[in-house]
């Protein structure tokens, strides 16, 4: 049992590396992994002028969409850390307040269900500091889609 638990921990660590630390898009956006467990992921995104909607405004809605989609996907993979590819089927976000220029953002995603090879995630975006709610959303992911998995490619076993 201890070996199984160690393997799961290792796979979840590998997922964070693949989805955040070594991922070209996550790195280009400046995503930082904060914490995570078996079904929940928290990431931070520092405010950056080149990601704003317009000069003097906060981060663009598209930035929030992109990072939250990534956090949702990672939360689904953390819950089912077996070698498989996933793809977003649906993504919904409500923008509650404009992201401000004076605060970094915290993205929290939770995979709350897996059924019939579909992963369900929900979460929110808050301001670091005062915790103000910026956006809320949800997404569904198809599991086991075609193509090489992150694990096999990372291990050099890909096609």
């Amino acid at each position: 049992m201890a070996d199984d638990a160690d393997l799961l921990d290792q796979r979840r660590n590998d997922l964070v590396t693949l989805f955040i630390d070594d991922h070209p898009m996550a790195r280009a956006l400046g995503m930082e992994f904060v914490e995570g467990d078996w079904n929940r992921v928290v990431c931070r995104l520092p405010m950056r002028d080149d990601l704003t909607f317009r000069e003097g405004a906060g981060l663009a809605p598209g930035v929030l969409l992109t990072v939250l989609d990534g956090v949702f996907g990672l939360s689904v993979c953390m819950r089912v850390p077996v070698p498989q590819a996933i793809a977003t089927i649906e993504l919904k976000i409500d923008f509650i307040e404009d992201a401000r220029t004076d605060a970094d953002l915290v993205f929290t995603g939770e995979c709350y269900a897996i059924a019939d090879n579909v992963g369900y995630a929900r979460g929110e975006i808050t301001r670091q500091g005062d915790g103000g709610l910026v956006a809320g959303g949800s997404a569904t992911f198809m599991l086991g889609t075609r193509g090489p998995t992150f694990f096999t490619e990372a291990a050099g076993e890909g096609a």
Binding site: P24, M25, L65, V67, L68, D69, F150
Partner: peptide
């Protein structure tokens, strides 16, 4: 790119 192995664009980027 969201999935570097498939060279597929990330879903949030398409939404953007």
């Amino acid at each position: 790119i969201g999935n570097p192995f498939l060279r597929a664009v990330q879903g949030g980027i398409v939404a953007s």
